[in-house]
């Protein structure tokens, strides 16, 4: 065994680097993505608390409407489709950004944002309808948990749309600089994770909730 392999073996006794030589610190892009990923995981933990509250309070309707009476599954299916396609188009826009194609990037981001706004419009209509027929968040513990969980996700989507518009403006004004690309990476992660949380919401809140 040569000195070099000995030194290598000491530095990485479990061969975690897959036989690659030491590379020094990771690039800023990877570090930034990792930091933002940890934030997103903390956000997922936050949502898990709301999910736990919803699951515990599902039956506590206090004589008010049950899930099966207030959920419109066709509207939920439309919201799901809008958010899923917007997540897909967001990925395509990121590819356009990687090949430095300004026009297709802006088109992709605009479509992503419009789909997000469509989602928010459907959700606003649902919430307004519920409040209008005396099924607002103050009606029962079940409805409080419902509005907190779904409303928190809606607030995240709203912030995401604002962020999306900011990124479109930044790329338009400053081009695909390295720091802008890192912000785009974080935005794309945020948008995809919102869709993951929506998967949990439509499965647990709407589909299981309307059966209970």
């Amino acid at each position: 065994m040569t000195d070099a392999t000995l030194a290598y073996g000491r530095g990485d006794p479990y061969q975690l680097h897959g036989g690659r030589p030491h590379e020094g610190p990771a690039s800023k892009r990877i570090v930034t993505g990792y930091g933002f990923w940890i934030f997103l995981l903390s956000d997922i933990v936050l949502f898990s608390c709301f999910f736990a509250a919803y699951a515990v309070l599902l039956g506590q309707t206090a004589g008010g409407p049950r899930g099966s009476e207030i959920f419109d599954l066709r509207s939920v299916a439309a919201e799901t489709a809008l958010l899923l396609i917007s997540s897909f188009v967001c990925g395509l826009a990121m590819i356009a950004a990687d090949v430095r194609n300004q026009r297709w990037f802006q088109i992709g981001m605009a479509v992503t944002g419009l789909l997000g706004l469509g989602f928010l419009a459907l959700e606003y209509r649902e919430f307004a309808g519920l409040v209008g027929r005396d099924a607002g968040p103050t009606r029962s513990a079940f409805l409080s948990a419902f509005f907190t969980l779904v409303g928190c996700h809606g607030a995240h989507v709203s912030v995401g749309v604002l962020w999306l518009l900011t990124m479109m403006a930044q790329v338009f004004a400053k081009g695909f600089r390295a720091d802008i690309m890192r912000r785009l990476l974080c935005f794309a992660l945020f948008w995809h994770v919102l869709d993951i949380i929506w998967v949990a919401i439509f499965s647990v809140v709407y589909l299981i909730g309307s059966a209970a």
Binding site: P21, A26, S27, R29, I30, G33, I95, V99, L185
Partner: peptide, 14 residues
């Protein structure tokens, strides 16, 4: 290339 995220490569396959 070492230390590069997938999107950082010079040549990007779409």
């Amino acid at each position: 290339p070492a230390g590069l995220a997938p999107g950082d490569e010079e040549e990007v396959r779409i």
